[in-house]
């Protein structure tokens, strides 16, 4: 009987795969208030997932209430994040939705893809809205933290066409050793027309979603011992009705993966990215495309 007991209890514990595949950081995704602004009796509450602005793609919800805490029935709500760099004092923005969308729950929804963390400069968010025909404008400082979920990493680059692009991963937040639907936003900085008017002039900090491009995908494990390991049945990302880019990525095991990309414009011309070798090369660190995002799960 004693023998039986010692043998039934395992010498080495089995992996707790479900716990390993998702830590609490990536599991939780709830909108919480990140900051509130006040102007002329109105309270503007800005909510982001888990109450923290992070580098990369952030969904944003704005709620505007009057002093009694009632929905202010605001309209034409705008949002504009601007960072003033500590290094040179220059101002820059990031891909964002300027005109927020009203949803049925009384929120105004949008997104911002922060390209820098707050340690590089001071991020201000400028909110504009209209109540009963009167326009209001306010701004406040926000903190953009490091992206702790590497599956939501982003990259900014200048394309071969000279344009400034940003690619941000939106999904999967919690990848699995499985076929994963991958979603990315691809953005491009718009060229300002004319001289700036009063600061901040949104037309000088404007970005738009890139339409009709293709993001070719080649996921590989960069670790030398993995010998440039890849996975089968991946699908390139193409734009869908939500104007985001959707594709399929298969992760064959947990660990470090590099998503090697080639961005093609509407005519199939390469905007950025290089083809990576597909040879199996044990002991050699995987060669990355010119355009890539590293993830980890």
């Amino acid at each position: 009987m004693a023998l039986c007991c010692t043998a039934v209890s395992c010498t080495i514990d089995k992996a707790d795969y479900e716990a390993e595949a998702g830590n609490s950081e990536t599991d939780r995704y709830e909108f919480e208030e990140a900051t509130t602004l006040h102007t002329q009796g109105y309270n503007i509450s800005i909510e982001v997932p888990n109450g923290e602005f992070r580098k990369g793609y952030n969904e944003i919800r704005v709620k505007i209430e009057d002093s009694k805490g009632k929905n202010a029935n605001a309209s034409t709500v705008t949002s504009l994040p601007i960072m003033s760099r500590y290094a040179d004092g220059s101002n820059l923005s990031c891909p964002h939705q300027y005109h927020l969308t009203h949803n049925d729950d009384g929120y105004f929804e949008g997104y911002a893809v922060f390209t820098e963390e707050s340690e590089k400069g001071d991020w201000q968010i400028y909110i504009g809205f209209t109540v009963n025909g009167v326009s209001y404008q306010t701004n406040g400082s926000i903190t953009v933290n490091e992206q702790t979920n590497k599956n939501l990493n982003m990259t900014s680059f200048t394309g071969n066409d000279g344009e400034a692009y940003t690619i941000a991963l939106i999904a999967p937040r919690k990848p699995e050793v499985a076929e994963n639907d991958i979603v990315a936003g691809i953005y491009k900085r718009n060229h300002p027309t004319g001289e700036p008017e009063t600061f901040p002039d949104s037309s000088h900090f404007s970005y738009s979603r890139v339409n009709g491009y293709t993001l070719q995908l080649d996921p590989r494990m960069p670790e030398p011992s993995m010998g440039n390991h890849s996975s089968p049945n991946n699908r390139d990302l193409t734009q869908q009705s939500d104007s985001l880019y959707h594709g399929v990525v298969n992760y064959t095991m947990t660990g470090n993966w590099t998503l090697n990309f080639i961005l093609l414009d509407q005519s199939g011309k390469i905007v950025k990215g290089t083809k990576v070798p597909s040879d199996f090369t044990p002991g050699v660190e995987g060669v990355k495309s010119e355009l890539f995002i590293d993830i980890l799960f």
Binding site: A15, Y17, E20, V177, M221, E223, P224, S225, M226, T252, M253, T254, G255, N256, L296
Partner: peptide
Amino acid sequence: MYPQDRSKKTMFAY
């Protein structure tokens, strides 16, 4: 699988 840099996360599959 253990990466050369042991401080990195292990790679796992069933």
